[in-house]
């Protein structure tokens, strides 16, 4: 797509504002006391859901490019990843500041007893290096290692799913939907990877 640079800037701004919308709506509902009987849980789950959704969106861009042959989706990959991190950070902060009231004793009481929270913390900490190295400068500085490092997102998608599965009481419908999406998105990459390997072997044989 041969669009001017200024158009892309405008489109990016729109996508940015749209991605911020769930946050604005949650904040508005919190201020207006419209989060229901358990507002902390509503905020907490709301931010967690959006973190997972942006993670799926970010993971979906590469397969979309490969299938359609269009290159524009990659322009949004960084933004989607950073929004996943933004909502994951809010999810973490709501837990620590509102749910645990910032209390260290509450943290000590509750976190070791909750495997799903440990898995959530692991997921969040794994996201930090990716957010930190998301700038163009870091990308250049890390060169080939940048790609390797950012493959961590595959692990993050899986630990995020485990985090979700472990907190559910009985109805696995929601985490199953996300699991299916992530299975397809990671499976696509796996097939691509295997395809390349097979091609290499075939061409190696052919040249012998």
């Amino acid at each position: 797509m041969a669009l001017d640079k200024k158009y892309w800037t405008a489109i990016k701004a729109c996508v940015f504002l749209l991605s911020l919308l769930p946050f604005v709506l949650l904040l508005k509902a919190a201020i207006q006391d419209q989060l229901g009987a358990n507002p902390v849980e509503a905020l907490h789950h709301g931010c967690g859901d959006w973190a997972l959704r942006f993670l799926c969106l970010g993971l979906g861009l590469t397969p979309y490019r490969k299938i359609t042959g269009q290159s524009w989706p990659i322009r949004f990959r960084r933004m989607m990843g950073l929004f996943a991190f933004f909502y994951a950070t809010l999810h973490f902060l709501v837990y620590v500041i509102l749910d645990l009231s910032g209390s260290w004793s509450a943290f000590k009481d509750e976190v070791p007893d909750s495997p799903y929270i440990l898995m959530g913390l692991l997921t969040f900490f794994l996201m930090i290096p990716l957010a930190v190295t998301s700038t163009k400068a870091m990308q250049k500085r890390l060169a080939a290692n940048w790609r390797k490092l950012h493959r961590l997102v595959y692990i993050i998608a899986i630990t995020a799913l485990i985090h979700f599965f472990w907190l559910v009481k009985a109805d696995y419908t929601q985490p199953l939907v996300y699991a299916l999406i992530i299975f397809v998105l990671l499976g696509f990459r796996m097939l691509l990877f295997l395809g390349k390997k097979i091609n290499k072997i075939q061409s190696a044989w052919a040249s012998e």
Binding site: N38, L98, S101, A106, D109, E110, S114, L167
Partner: peptide, 22 residues
Amino acid sequence: VSHPRWSQKRERVLGSSIFAAK
């Protein structure tokens, strides 16, 4: 006695302020 997957030491009181401790 914790639930195998979460602590039972505290409870969120419904209707309490968003900044209220459990």
